[in-house]
Structures are given as structure tokens and as C-alpha cells.
Amino acid sequence: MASKRNGSEGGPRRYCGTGGALHATFNMLALSWIIISELLLSAHCLKDLKIFVPEAVRTGNSATLSCQYDLEQAALYSVRWYFGQEEFYRYIPREAKPTFVFAVSGINVDLSKSDATSVTLKSVTRELSGIYQCEVSEDAPLFHTEIRSAHMQVIELPKDEPVMQVDKKEISVNDNLKAVCTVGPSYPPANITWLINGRKIYKTPLQRISHDTYEGSTTYSSLDLLPHSQALQVFFQALPKYQHNIVLQCDVSIMQLLYKSVHQPIRLSNAPPTTISPNLLGLEGSKRYANGDPDNSALTGASQRCCICCGALGAFSLALVTLAVAQL
């Protein structure tokens, strides 16, 4: 009985020992595969993928897009370029003809200037503004793939020079100054900035700035500086000793492809403002007094009564002299 128990008890112990060994072996194999995979990935792996796309390019010009990467001794499988979601260029080095171009509306690839790291587009148009993607894949066994994207803006510059118009070229402390800066059609619309003597003018209640622009049409910016505006007051305060002229400036820019400036000299006048008394214009008498006599000033009521009395006295004296001569 004891041997049987010992035998029966020994059987299951041997079975369990075999299962434990299998489980340990599987764990060792899995761990080894993980270690080998990590070593492969760390030793030969696609790294440091970077994309370089022009931020802005003028219509009709060429644009070169590039993709820089480090394969670390791994083999390159392919490089693919996309505009939006459409593939337009592919490079596979192990193919007999490594370069492939796909038909995408508006895209014209210059194959003589395209390879594993860059692709050149000829005669770009406004429709090619958008997102470009570069996808790089390494070869077997891992086929590790990474992708980067960047935006390119195709610019259409205005054909004519910007123009500034001002309502006056000399102002005093109580004058408004109005100006308009005009830029021809462009894509995207031009940015317009106002300055005085190189200082930017900001929009405030006394410094009114407005912009009117529509895609494909002329861009306007208007400036209205009211009396005592911050931009002018600083110069009028220095007028008696230092400042006699200022330069109004209109800056026009479109991203980094266009920067132009228009200047207009403005003379500052320190003459006191001209004012006319309402009494001299006869505007106050009828309103303030029923008899039309606003006050007893020398220029209005008192002087008029004095002149009337003098006139009557002169006429009476003339009549007496005439009568005396007649009697003689």
C-alpha cells in the first residue's frame, strides 16, 4: 500500500516537474526574443526623421521639399511624398527604376532634381498651398516606418507699388489727420502697418485704424488720428524746441516674400488755433436777448447806440447852420 501511494504520488510529481520546465523554457525563449528585438531596433533603426518644406514660395517658382533621416546601417525600402492624402512621388532604391511619379492635379515633378532625400516641384501655383507629408520606411525584416508633415504657402504678389494718400500735409494740435494706404490684389491679402517716425500706431478710441480686404482684390487700410491722439501728442509736446516735422509711414508685408514701405512727411504747426467770436457773426444776440443786443461791449450794443446818437446830433447841428446862413 505504501509503495503504491509512493508510486502514485511520484507520478504526478514527475508530470508537474515536466510542465514547469516547459513553462520556464517558453519564458526564456520569449525573453530572448524581446532582447534580440530590442538589440535589432537599437542597432539598426530609422531615426531622426525631419521634413523641410518652404514656408512660402512665389507663384511660378520652383519649390524643393526635403526629408532628412538616419537609418543607422539599416537598408532603405522607400520614400513617399504626399500632397494632402494623395501620393505624388515615390522612391524605391531596389527597383530598376527607383523613381515613380503619380498624376496629381497641379503638381509637376522635376525628376532631374529629385532623389531619396528631396523632391522638386516646378512652376508652383496657388492651388498647391497645403500640407505635404514625407513617409520613410526601412527594409526587411522590421519595415519600420515614420512620417512627417509641413505646410507650404504659395504666394501671389501684387503687381503695383503700394500708394499712400493723406488729407493734409500740415497739421496743428487741434487737427485730424486722415490717410489711406492701398495695395494691389495679392494672395494672401497683404498686411498693412502704420507708423510715425518709426513708432507703430496702435488702434485706440483716438487712433482709428480699419482694414478692407477681399481675396483677389485690392487691400485698403485707413488711418484717422483725432486731436490729442497719443501718436501725435508726444510730438506736439516737443514742438517748440525740437520737433517740426514727422514722417507718416505705411508698411506692407506678405509673409517673408514682400516688404515695402511708403513715407509721407507731415509738417507740425505751432500756430494757435483760430477762433471767431459768435458775437462778431451775429449768432448770439437774437438768442439771448429779445432786443437783439447781446451785451454792452464796444463791438455791439454800446457802440451802436453811441453811433446813432452821434448821427442825430450831427444832423441837428447841420440844420441850425443852414438856417443861420439863410437868414443872412
Rank of each mutant, 00 (worst) to 15 (best):
N108G: 08
S303M: 06
C250M: 01
E72A: 11
K169I: 08
C67A: 13
T25V: 15
L232P: 00
Y187E: 12
V57K: 05
E284R: 10
G292T: 06
Y220F: 12
P54D: 12
V101E: 15
R14Q: 15
L257M: 05
C45W: 09
H228P: 01
Q233N: 10
S210E: 14
F102R: 03
G17K: 14
R148G: 12
L121G: 02
D224S: 05
T120M: 11
Y89Q: 03
F143C: 12
R90M: 06
T275S: 11
D167P: 14
D251R: 02
C250N: 00
M164G: 04
I209N: 05
F100C: 07
S172R: 07
D70T: 01
E215G: 13
K50Y: 09
L49E: 09
Q256S: 03
H244R: 08
D224A: 07
I147S: 05
N174M: 10
P273S: 10
V57H: 02
V154M: 03
E215W: 11
K159W: 05
E161V: 11
L46A: 03
A326H: 03
P98M: 12
S222M: 00
L328C: 05
P273H: 04
K47H: 05
A63H: 06
A96I: 13
S317T: 00
K4P: 10
S8T: 15
A290Y: 07
G17Y: 13
F26S: 13
F236D: 04
R288G: 07
V234R: 02
L320Q: 01
Q327P: 02
V234G: 00
I201V: 12
Q249Y: 03
D70M: 10
V180D: 03
T300A: 14
L226K: 03
H44N: 09
N108I: 03
V325P: 09
N108C: 05
G301K: 08
L39G: 10
K203N: 10
I171E: 04
A312R: 04
K260T: 01
Y132C: 12
P188W: 11
P158W: 00
L328K: 15
R14I: 14
P189F: 06
K241S: 15
S37L: 14
D251M: 04
I131Y: 07
S317R: 00
E215P: 15
G60M: 01
F83E: 04
H23Q: 15
G17M: 14
A312K: 04
